[in-house]
Amino acid sequence: MIVFEIGAGTGLLAMLAARAGAAHVYSCERRADVAEAARAIIAHNSLSDRITVIAKDAHDLRLGEDLPQRADLFVAEIVDNSLLGEQVLPLTELARARFLTPDAILLPRTVSAMGALVSGHGHWQDYRMDQVMGFDLSPFNRFTPVEINAGKGGGELELLTEAVELARFDLHQDAPAEARHEVHLIAQQAGRAEALLRWLQLDFGDGITFENRPPQRSSWDPHLHLLPEARWLDAGAVCAMTVSHNRERLFLWPSEPSERDDPSVG
C-alpha cells in the first residue's frame, strides 16, 4: 500500500503508517525547515528507506515526479480547533483529484462539528460585563467577541441542551463553496444560555471515531460561539441556530424566532 500525507510535521503519522505496513509513505511539507527536521526524525528511527519527505507545498507536487504513482491511502492532520481552518476541505479535494486512486482510503473519512448550548458558568466573566465596583458596565458588551477558545477540556461548563451535529463533511465528496442550514437544540434543563459550545468529531471508518467533547482533553480545544445576548431556556424549549460555512470557517448564530422554536409545533 502506498500512502500519501499532506503536512509532515514531526513525521509521526508517516512513521505510524510505515509501522502499520505501508510499502512506502510520501509526505509533503511546505516548510523546508520542518521537512528537514522530519527527515532527521525519520532517519533516527531507521525508516528513511520507506518514507520520503518532500519539501513542497501540496499544490506544487507533480505526479510522476515527486510521487511516482497514485496512493492507496491518504492521511493528514489538517483539522484545527475550528474544524476547517487548516484547509482540510480543499486540500483533501486536491489530494483526491491529483494523487489518489479512485478507491483510496481517507483518514479521517468524515469531519464534523458537534455542539450544545451552555450556561456561562466558568466563562461568562471572560466575555460579559455587568456590575463592577457599583457601576453598570453592560453597554460595553457590544464588544463581546463572536468566538473564543474554551481551553483544554472546556473548563467548567454546564450543558443545557442535548448535543447535536452542527455540520458534517464527507471528505470523499467535494464541498460546496458555501452552505447554510438550521439546527434545533432542545433544553434538557432550565438555564441561562450564554454560548454554543462546539467540538470536533472525526470518523475513521469501521466504528473508529475521535471526539474532543468536554471534559475530554486533547491537542484540540473546544470553542465557544457567544450568543449576542444571553437567553433563558425552560426545560424542553427549542433553540434554533443557523450554521453556515465558506469552506474555511464555520459561522453560527441564533435564528430569528419563529414557530419552529416552539416544541409544540411538529
Rank of each mutant, 00 (worst) to 15 (best):
E256L: 14
V75L: 12
Q131A: 11
V183Q: 07
T52H: 06
S258C: 09
D203L: 05
Q87H: 14
I6S: 00
L200K: 00
E229P: 03
R260G: 05
Y26D: 01
A240V: 12
V111K: 04
H44M: 15
L13H: 01
P68W: 07
A40D: 09
P254N: 01
C239K: 10
G266V: 12
P254W: 03
R31V: 15
I41Q: 13
S258Q: 08
Q173V: 11
K152T: 13
E156F: 12
L100T: 02
G266K: 15
Q131I: 12
M129G: 09
D221H: 03
A32E: 13
E162H: 12
R70T: 06
L83R: 00
S112K: 11
A195V: 08
A195M: 05
A235V: 10
C28N: 06
V75S: 07
A43N: 09
R62A: 13
G205T: 11
D206N: 12
A43D: 13
H44T: 12
L107H: 03
F169A: 01
A58K: 02
D60Y: 15
L94P: 06
I148K: 01
S46T: 10
D203R: 02
W124R: 14
I208N: 12
L159F: 15
V132E: 10
N246Q: 11
D262E: 09
M1E: 13
H123S: 06
V25T: 07
L89D: 02
G120L: 07
F99W: 05
A38I: 13
I208Q: 14
E248C: 14
G9R: 04
A17F: 00
S219P: 00
H223S: 08
A22S: 08
H121V: 14
R31G: 06
